[in-house]
Design a protein around this nucleic acid. Sequence first.
RNA 1: GCCGGGGUGGUGAAACUGGUAGACACACAGGACUUAAAAUCCUGAGGCUCGCAAGGGCCGUGCGGGUUCGAGUCCCGCCCUCGGCACCA
Length: 872
Amino acid sequence: MNEKYFPVEIEEKQQKRWAEAGAFNADVDSAKQKFYCLEMLPYPSGRIHMGHVRNYSIGDALSAYKRMQGFNVLHPIGWDAFGMPAENAAIKNNSRPDVWTLENIDSMRAQLKQLGFNYDWRREIATCTPEYYRWNQWFFIQMWKQGLLYRRNATVNWCVKCNTSLANEQAEGGFCWRHEDTPVELRELEQWFIRVTNYADELLDSLDTLANAWPERVLAMQRNWIGRSKGAEVDFRVAQEHAPTNGKKVRVFTTRVDTIYGASCVIVAPEHALVEELVASGKASNELMTFAEKQKAISKEDRIAEGAAKEGVNTGLFAENPFNGQRLPIWTANFVLTGYGTGAIMAVPAHDERDFEFCTKYGLPIPRVIKLADSADADDAPVEAAFTNKDNAAVVINSGKFSGLSVPEAIKAMTEYAEEHGFGEAKTNFKIRDWGVSRQRAWGTPLPFIHCPKCGIVPVPEDQLPVELPKDLNFNTTGSPLAEAPDFVNVDCPTCGGAARRDTDTMDTFVDSSWYYFRYTDSKNEELPFAPDVAAYWTPVDQYIGGIEHAVLHLIYTRLWTKIMRDLGLITFGEPVKKLLTQGMVCLATYRCEEHDWLYPYEVIDGKCKFCGRAAAVGRTEKMSKSKKNTVDPDEMIKIHGADTVRLFMMFAAPPEKDLEWSETGAEGASRFLNRVWRIVYKWHDKLAAAKLGGDQQSTFSDEARALRRKTHQTIRRVSNDIGERMNFNTAVAAMMELTNEIYAFDNSLKDDSSDADRFALKEAMQALVKMLAPFTPHIAEELWESLGHDEIVVTSAWPEYDAELAKAEELEIPVQLNGKLVARLVVPAEATDDELKAAALANDRVQAKLDGRQIVKTIVVPKRLVNLVAK
RNA sequence: GCCGGGGUGGUGAAACUGGUAGACACACAGGACUUAAAAUCCUGAGGCUCGCAAGGGCCGUGCGGGUUCGAGUCCCGCCCUCGGCACCA
């Protein structure tokens, strides 16, 4: 053992030892309980960043802990290797995306290995390899057979920078998820879709089973995104005098059918068929035509953007309210959207804020049909503002035979009435759409389908999978490189043998990550994506750890995919992830000066820019990102401090779900702690390696030694609980620091010639400390374990157990309160009874002085915790 | 507007079930060691205040109420802040 702690040296050494021993390899073992710990797989951008380090340090600590607890731990890693940056690099450098990607994987793999993470590297996957993506293709063919995959013409979100279409989830708010400054365009294209809507109800309902196991905000975001809305569709008939639309039905969707007697008009979207027909037949007014044309040219986001005024035009048509026969004008308006519901609504201004605003603006009537049951208002009192209460306290009025029912009762009764009379039905709408999975790019999984002029769409026979990407594509093209590769495109139809064309779309890369962790369980399987019995042992994932940014992308897709795999008979459950942890971001305080824009904290000296001396303004603490130039390179930190220190700081500085501010002095503190541990172990390791452990030496222990043993066992209890139950790694580290401080105090209290009992207590404390450090700082733990005389590998050794007897305090400090305010602290034997506590409290001088002769009316004793005297 | 987090020293944070608020660390100050510095080891510290000192008093977890013997923690009403959704009928 070296006198000084040289992290880089021992880190290399121990990494080699683990690799040679295959320490982290795990295989199916039905005799052992499994634990599947998973972190979101990285995109191989080229370099690991601090966010990765944090994410993987958390997963690594948990896996190591569980492994030491005796679980059969699966802890794999791989690469989400398809995607745009590789293709852009290929265009820019006139090179190949596969070469770029594989090089990046190589350098990032080396970085991960340098950090000493306990992965089973045998299971590594890269989603861009044919061995992986052939199963994407296999899944698509199964889904095609089940009718879960289909093709249709659709208006899609198109990003001009990506040069491809995007899923709705990737175009939130009208901007590309990868180019947040680029508004998406709408294009009409034939596209592949996965039928998410088949699973919409289940995706929503089974979120309830994840309560308390997934963060509430993720569940809330998913509920919001799925957006289920229960209501009814009702047909309004267009009045007879209006050719050519006379007698046609306008179907509206409403969640408030109970308010239908209060409808004052019907409003259709500018794209609605009714408007189109009016325009086509020449019966539309000039005003209507201009309005419809104008609205259609504006994107949905702009049309409904905040602050956009409600605008509408009367079509001149009338519709008949099916409940009371009332004639209602039909309008068209900008805020009614064609993509949701039926593209038509009934406007009930008295009970909907939006309708109130619209009808007020255009002078339409505002009849009241709902009021509070106990309201004194007259039923025909004028409406000042939309009244939207819809619970049992609200009742229907002015609504024929439905008057007097509560809102929930009326919704039920009126929906049934509409169904009985054939002009409406109950209907549930969702905001979530089918998943558009087509991409017009070349660095992705090819769709395994062939378009035959005779046979239509024909799946590639499964024994011909994978459909491989050509390696020699020309990327300097405006269209899809795959579409311009004749050898790829031109094929014979598998059914009729005639000339046919291969589909040239590739899959959304979120397909790859929807099931990758099932592949880890059986990553070399050549018959199936994974063997069901192998996956049945390892899955579902026990703990998933990743960033919040995937709350509605990856985490919805993978839940969907799991349900599809269940329905294909591959697995037996529908929720893939038992527990989810969304770790916070890694941030850095930022500063700016006029001349040098962004500054690192260490470039600011006494509030002044280090380069030019100008005053530096304190900026916000912001997420590390390349564009903000406020990143800290993990490699450099490892070079300076060692991997263990970097990892320890990240675990200590904040609880995992909170944002963490990178601090150079904080990292130095973590390094100081490890050096402190090193020094005390170095001081003793020769003497302790020979010291005997075991046997009952209780009677010979000094007070100091007994105190140290107590701290040791208390710390084991605390750290086990902090990691295993609460996932509060920061407090686990704090507890280990306390134990270290206690070891130093004990060392200082020792005479030169320490007794066997003292050595026993020291060795017990140091061994427990080293073992508990293993999940956080595995390299130094390993090195110290060796120095204490062990051949075994510590990171796979058994987790220490605490002895409840030894952890028990011998004396307690009991606070005494007078009327709830602290007046004294008593030191009493741990076994003191409640009566003894009370007596000791009353005997206390300070208590008596504070009491000042007052009468005690009540005494509360919380056993072993506190005494509270209530005095008048 | 709706939904979900937060608000505790100079700083990052602890306080697990309602029971000693501020563990642990950073920064800071003092002492020891040293020719000196660094490193290390030890000690101190929420704020205000009285006292030469030992020691005492008051205040203190965003604000205002409430429940309780006792509230950072529970309840009611606000304020601020971060994140998500938002004319979805």
